[in-house]
Amino acid sequence: MKLTLRIWRQHHRTAKGEMVDYHLDDVSEHMSFLEMLDVLNEKLLAEGKDAIAFDHDCREGICGACSLVINGKPHGGFPNTTTCQVHMRHFNDGDVVTVEPWRANAFPVLKDLVVDRTAFDRVMHSGGFVSVNTGGTPDANAIPIAKNEADIAMDAAACIGCGACVAACKNASAMLFVSAKIGQFRHLPQGKVEQLDRAKRLVAQMDAEGFGACTNTYDCEGACPKSISATFIAEMNRDFLKGNLCEP
């Protein structure tokens, strides 16, 4: 099929960006979206032009690196799908496809489609862990954990930290990402000890990074390629409030 790609080009962080049109003539429906961009980049390089920078690595939907807004939707808006898992069979001959980076103040563009997501890491540094050192831990089966609780923890832990939730949210809020980490730990006995303190610390860092507030529209949940549920946001709010009331 033939496609027109309308892609965001921006040379560096402070440069002014613009949408640039590219044409590809023989896109196979079996290609992945990123393979289609590879083909375009090969063409650009062969012409001596600068390749389009985009983040990617595993190309199987688990590392969370890929991060494109395709036709206005993070990861293209396909259910439970990351950009790297989008295949060209979902597009038609003659389509005009827009490709943009995540848009959020807390995620500045570094180049073209690549954004800086280290704000997520800094949120994690502030308390996204159980405070145990290596060694001296009890036998793994010493504390039984009900399967349904472990399953909920796993549902939350499935977050790949891609940032689609932020990109989808009109407030650029990071509540889904932050609540998934809090949610994972609050459903496990190992994480319970620091539950309230963790919520306070992560929320404080989230605010400091310039992410927006949550107004409960749940676009984050809809955009999440790992189906992280917005109920974790409710749980996080409860922990945050309780943490501030009990030990302000």
Binding site: F129, V130, V132, T134, G135, T137, P138, A140, P144, I145, A146, K147, A150, A153, M154, A157, Q184, F185, L188, Q190, G191
Partner: peptide, 15 residues
């Protein structure tokens, strides 16, 4: 070590 860190390994119904 991993369990202590909160790694959610698969579990049986007995926990």
């Amino acid at each position: 070590q991993c369990v202590a860190q909160g790694v959610p390994f698969a579990r049986e119904y007995g926990g």
